[in-house]
């Protein structure tokens, strides 16, 4: 996945050409792909799909697409965008799942507290 130097050169040229187009992304697709891979790995490890199935699925699909585009060596911008989206989809899934688990804990605690109160009153 290491980018040939001519490709880096071409990217730099592209960046120059689009000078007036605002900030440009110099991050290579390899970097963005690994960010998405890492996020998805965490999402799987924390079983985020149990609570945020849609976001995890979106992330998986986008990462796969990003990978195959990156391998073809063309449309690097598209690969980078897909990888960025995959990463944030996965991160959102992780946060949502964490929140859902905390809410479950909260409900359990509320129930136990209710029981303890009853025990104390009796």
């Amino acid at each position: 996945m290491v980018m040939p130097s001519w490709m880096t050169g071409a990217l730099a040229l592209l960046a120059l050409a689009g000078g007036c187009a605002g900030p440009q992304f110099t991050e290579s697709p390899t970097v963005t792909l690994s960010g998405a891979e890492q996020a998805l790995k965490e999402a799987r490890a924390t079983r985020a799909a149990e609570f945020a199935a849609l976001e995890v699925q979106m992330a998986e699909d986008k990462l796969e697409q990003a990978r195959s585009i990156a391998e073809s060596g063309e449309q690097l911008g598209r690969s980078r965008r897909l990888a960025e989206q995959a990463e944030i989809d996965a991160r959102l899934a992780i946060i949502k799942a964490e929140t859902e688990r905390l809410q479950q804990m909260r409900r359990q605690l509320e129930e136990t507290i209710e029981l303890l109160r009853k025990d104390l009153d009796s």
Partner: peptide
Amino acid sequence: RRYLGMAQAVTKRERSKREVEQLTDQH
């Protein structure tokens, strides 16, 4: 849109965390 979604989701998670902490103390 996703970053805004994350901002809201993280806030909700932090609130849940605090709630769980409070309830744990109470428990």
